[in-house]
Design a binder for these strands. Structure first.
Lengths: 129, 129
DNA sequence: ACCATACATCCGGATATGCGGATATAACTA
DNA sequence: TAGTTATATCCGCATATCCGGATGTATGGT
């Protein structure tokens, strides 16, 4: 496997060559890490899937995942803050939904990568659960 | 923003329509969550960037990130287990490197998404740091 | 005004994760 | 063989994250 794998993909994607993919400053990396941790939870992934097909209220989400109201509300706020879903106030309701197609793309890439490496991933003890 | 954002992107990406993006079984979601948490740490993101351009030994990585040998070794093993980098034994050395172009694609998508939402992301208190 | 509904936030407890130091293993070298 | 180097693993401590219950806030209905 050649060393230029990364450079080639950067080229293929039409990205500016030579510029870092991961932020060079510590603060920027902390933000990107936070972004990934937001979808690094099984419950939030389930909610994300549920919010792909259209708007859903918090109550509908609660029924879907079977956790407490406070927890589900917090998970949804987290997904919204981190840009995975959009929140819309509608009277007493808040309707959440995935609106950015790049979120779909991101998850589909992760799906493919995890599928190709499921065994080692499941066995990795440095991250629990 | 229409409700079919997700379906449209699935179509555009040539993915099988109707099949879930996120695994339907809890075990599968746990694995995908683990995958994202692996890159949900600033140090591992820094290492990932460092490993884009070619093979690096553990010692070189230690110098790059400035953390203890045990910690860096553990971070690298985590990235390898989760499929972000490849590890190759070479005598006394272990050489790590990003070899899968999809990793580059994934990070570039995250870069774009976080850039468009940096303020809210930084302000999200449900995930600390 | 009063109450019910829908949601958001606060709190303390349990588990997960990051950290460095100590130790173990494995490969070269003299 | 003995010693050095490179890396991996184990340990306890500190912090982060998930959880449900309690409480706060806003909207709509009577």
């Amino acid at each position: 496997m050649p060393a230029q794998t990364a450079a080639r993909e950067v080229e293929r994607l039409g990205l500016p060559p030579g510029s870092p993919l991961v932020p060079a400053e510590h603060a920027g990396r902390r933000v990107m890490a936070k972004f990934f941790r937001a979808i690094g939870d099984p419950t939030r992934l389930l909610l994300l899937e549920f919010l792909l097909d259209g708007e859903r209220t918090v109550s509908e989400c609660i029924e879907q995942v079977g956790l407490s109201q406070s927890r589900v509300s917090s998970h949804l706020a987290c997904l919204a803050d981190c840009g995975f879903v959009t929140a819309r106030r509608d009277g007493r309701f808040t309707r959440y939904q995935v609106t950015d197609p790049r979120v779909v793309h991101l998850i589909s890439l992760a799906r493919a990568l995890t599928a190709d490496n499921a065994a080692a991933l499941a066995a990795c003890v440095r991250i629990d659960t």
